[in-house]
Design a protein around this nucleic acid. Structure first.
Lengths: 201, 201
DNA sequence: TCCGCTTGTCAACGCCTGATGACAAAGCCA
DNA sequence: TGGCTTTGTCATCAGGCGTTGACAAGCGGA
């Protein structure tokens, strides 16, 4: 993706960071199993062996990527009363997947990056080990805290479930392409209402 | 799983069926990538080469398994006014995964088998090819037809999204083990209400 | 200028996967 | 009984994977 013919300056920190960002992009758009060390290395313009040296194993790299994300917290950027509509628009219309922005700074696809990574690798046994151990702290708990009010953990699960499921539905049906424009609008409207209801109630 | 020391009687049709059922179980509980031909073969007590002979490729086997499921239609078994509660109980409390019943006949885990397979292999690029081509006909359209009423396709997407997302959430947090019993009850209650609202409205 | 540490490359290893084609055994028919 | 088709096994292949250790190249300090 980001091939660069000019020789990379010798800078371990920058290279490490570049690997991390390339891996983050890959894990956003492909599942754990479908992401190869050689792919990531090629994106950076570096040899695959270097990744092993810097990060240890592929699993360690995956953990480092998860740690490098704001994991769900960017869901909560923006006014609270817009939450439902914001998310619904992003999923129904937006360029949710793949995300191809430049790392730390949040672009259009930057939202929900951690969530995307979770989604992509649901089902991969190895990735699941990692995610099960961390998804509570990493994702559900902050969301519940942000939501607040009675039964916040429960409502957070429901909201997260709806978001994840709709994101998957989008994947399964190729961006809801079988729905007409009015239907997509209706879908966004209803989803926004359902989500906002979970936040407000 | 179903190892059998007695030599299997030479019966191509029965063997083919046994392979299909073993593969269905595997694809229910593991992702496309994590299911190996040798695993399936071992379950049946047969050599892996036989699967290639009978089904062609692994992808063909996967398609055959999807075809052999009632794909989502079992979601609609039972009274319509119970839909929300039935699904919510199954996801929050039930033995949703893995399903280990005997094929055609529906047991506790038989519900949503096609849906489970979709979920498991979301993210696997190869499986996604297959599923994208068929998930509309196979899953969303029947659900929309069953739901009926205004914006049925839209409401079907939302219902399916909520179901899938909650099933994933269950996976991610190991059966909602971090929630107390009262919270789980509240989760089921709210999810049932949300689902039923999508069906009825 | 030479040394030594860092940064990166290269070739290879062991392992696992899905798939293939040659071969063995069972059953059927004459 | 002998031959033929069906059913299943076995050894093997090519290809991909993550990972490793030996080596090359850059670079700062004496």
């Amino acid at each position: 993706m980001v091939l660069c013919d000019a020789p990379r300056p010798r800078n371990a920190n920058a290279t490490r960071q570049a690997i991390l960002e390339a891996a983050r992009e890959r894990f956003c758009s492909d599942s754990y199993d479908d992401v190869g060390m050689r792919d990531v290395a090629r994106d950076v313009g570096v040899d695959a062996a270097l990744i092993s040296r810097y990060f240890g194993s592929k699993e360690d790299l995956f953990v480092a990527v998860l740690d490098s994300c704001k994991n769900g917290r960017d869901l909560m950027d923006g006014p609270r009363e817009d939450f439902g509509e914001r998310l619904a628009r992003e999923i129904v219309y937006g360029e949710v997947m793949p995300c191809q922005d430049d790392g730390q700074n949040e672009g259009a696809g930057a939202k929900m990056r951690g969530l995307l990574i979770l989604l992509r690798s649901v089902g991969s046994a190895k990735a699941m080990d990692v995610m099960q151990r961390t998804s509570n702290n990493r994702f559900f708990d902050p969301l519940a805290a942000w939501i607040g009010g009675p039964d916040a953990p429960v409502r957070a699960r429901l909201a997260a479930g709806l978001i994840m499921g709709m994101a998957i539905g989008r994947e399964l049906s190729d961006g809801y392409s079988s729905l007409g424009e009015t239907q997509k609008a209706e879908l966004a409207r209803r989803m926004a209402g359902a989500l906002q209801g979970l936040i407000d109630n």
